[in-house]
Design a binder for these strands. Structure first.
Length: 480
RNA sequence: GGCCCCAUCGUCUAACGGUUAGGACACCACUCUUUCAAGGUGGUAAUACGGGUUCGAUUCCCGUUGGGGUCACCA
């Protein structure tokens, strides 16, 4: 019962607008996107908003924005499931009309009572199918009397199996499955029916979705059969776990893609990292472009087991992107961050500063922070990563800053460039009988509050003469 | 509890019967730069357990253990 592989695959990503865009969902979208690009297929975005209670317009926006930020585009949509209720209803009626479904008059209260009284606990409750065998006259009488009813699907007592593209063959049996409701008493469709109805209407050929849908799949396959249609290829991708092996949760870390945007993760790095979470090209490549990933992508190469989200590796990978891309790539984003911090770089060209710091930055936020420090070193007081060095040096710290000050003070503004500054500082170190590093490192700490930066002479060149001298004076006085 | 899925270094993974079990992050060491990083080189570190099948199992089968998913008039 393999899928109808049409010439061009048709994929869909179908989020529910009941919250933010989860990184797991983002990765599912990414896999769909890569597969579509690999095969020349069409990716459709479908918003599954049939849960009126929880779906909101705002959530829909957040999800679309997240996808756009990540750089995952779609070819059709967004379509809204809620707009297709009439078709869902028709499909439910067809199931009823062909004898594959039945009216159930049991009330929620009755069902709840039965569930509560289930011997093995509420989790073990299965509907006893009492309405399935109601006499036709009785059904007619109740309908006549205006009794409310739902339409249930009569689950066939047969094997339901499929060849999952990532898991291989998965086998269920109809006897283990409930006679699920497909149409509520208020005539609105239940999820599984809506999904199947939509996937049929959209001629979806490949359903790539989360692992948590595995148990829905046999139910949906049964519905395809009932509607006389062939099911698509299914590919169930595993979930993403937190460092402690638990499901990624809001409490422990960032789960929404918006969180990563705020952290200063670069979208291409995020795509690269997410793709490698549960998938690999089969060789040792890690830093890959979208084109390379799409070319190497196959459903079969997706990992069966859940992957742990390693933020450290994401940041490493992000750093790789930051240092290899031109400064102009990040300038708009850096300006945005500066603005948020109330820093106005004016007309100054940020390019050279970004180039100076990008090798050492792991996130765009980190990068922007370093840029801010070079624009105005007086902010260094806010940093404290150089504290250990200052403690270690003790009285030598202000002394070395004094040497640096004297040497630099003699350099005229017109000669204030990296090469000249290196000569001057080297001479000063020699004169006082210390290593160059012994004078460079205190300068670095005094200006940035950090022990890590570009070469100190380059740093000074970017910061400028007056700001440098002012900073050295301030740092010295603070410590003497 | 029923049904289903899963199991290689701490983490992401490669090896789809024969490898000294490879790569990456992290960590450690060395190296380069008369400075910190970055880079380069090297190192520590894994096939959950027990049975089979086979000349030979990370790989195939069964079981155990351990994780996970799911069981609504939610999606």
């Amino acid at each position: 019962m393999s899928a109808p592989t049409a010439q061009r695959p048709r994929l869909r990503f179908a989020p529910s607008p009941t919250g933010y865009l989860h990184v797991g969902g983002a990765r599912t979208a990414l896999f769909n996107w890569l597969f579509a690009r690999k095969t020349g297929g069409t990716l459709i975005l479908r918003v599954e908003d049939t849960d009126q209670a929880r779906s909101t317009e705002a959530h829909t926006q957040v999800i679309l924005d997240g996808l756009r930020w990540l750089g995952i585009g779609w070819d059709e949509g967004p379509y809204f499931q809620g707009a297709e209720i009439e078709r869902h209803r028709r499909d439910a009626e067809q199931i009823l009309a062909t004898g594959q479904g039945y009216r159930c008059f049991c009330t929620r209260e009755e069902l709840e009572a039965q569930r509560a009284a289930a011997p093995g606990g509420p989790e073990t409750f299965k509907y006893d199918r009492r309405c399935r065998y109601l006499a036709p006259e009785e059904v007619a009488r109740r309908v006549e009397a205006g009794m409310p009813f739902v339409i249930r699907f009569a689950m066939p007592d047969e094997e339901i199996a499929w060849d999952d593209a990532v898991h291989g063959r998965i086998v269920f049996h109809g006897r283990d499955l409930d006679d699920m409701v497909v149409l509520r008493s208020n005539r609105t469709p239940i999820y599984n029916l809506a999904v199947v109805s939509d996937d049929i209407a959209m001629e979806i050929t490949h359903v790539i979705r989360g692992d948590d849908h595995i148990s829905n799949t046999p139910k949906q396959i049964a519905l395809y059969r009932a509607l006389g249609k062939t099911p698509p290829v299914f590919a169930h991708v595993p979930v993403i776990l937190d460092t402690d092996g638990k499901k990624l949760s809001k409490r422990r870390g960032a789960v929404a893609v918006g969180d990563y945007q705020e952290k200063g993760i670069y979208p291409a790095a995020m795509r690269n990292f997410l793709a490698l979470l549960g998938w690999s090209p089969g060789d040792d490549r890690e830093l890959m472009s979208d084109q390379e990933m799409a070319a190497a992508f196959t459903l079969e190469a997706i990992q069966k087991k859940p992957a742990v989200f390693d933020l450290t590796k994401l940041e490493w990978m992000n750093g790789q992107y930051l240092s290899s891309l031109p400064a102009a790539t990040f300038e708009p984003e850096v300006r945005r961050f500066l603005e948020e911090r109330g820093i106005d770089p004016g007309a100054r060209d940020l390019g050279p500063i970004i180039d100076a710091v990008k090798t050492r930055a792991r996130t765009v936020v980190d990068m922007a922070g370093r840029v801010a420090l070079r624009l105005d070193p007086s902010r260094a007081a806010l940093e404290s990563r150089g504290e250990a060095l200052i403690q270690k040096l003790g009285a030598a710290y202000p002394l070395r800053l004094e040497w640096a000050f004297d040497a630099l003070n003699a350099v005229p503004d017109t000669a204030w460039h990296a090469d000249r500054l290196l000569e001057v500082l080297t001479a000063a170190a020699t004169e006082h009988g210390v290593k160059l590093g012994d004078i460079m490192q205190p300068i670095r700490v005094a200006l940035t509050g950090d022990t890590v930066s570009e070469p100190a002479n380059e740093l000074l060149a970017v910061v400028g003469r007056s700001a440098t001298l002012a900073s050295l004076t301030r740092a010295r006085q603070a410590r003497s």
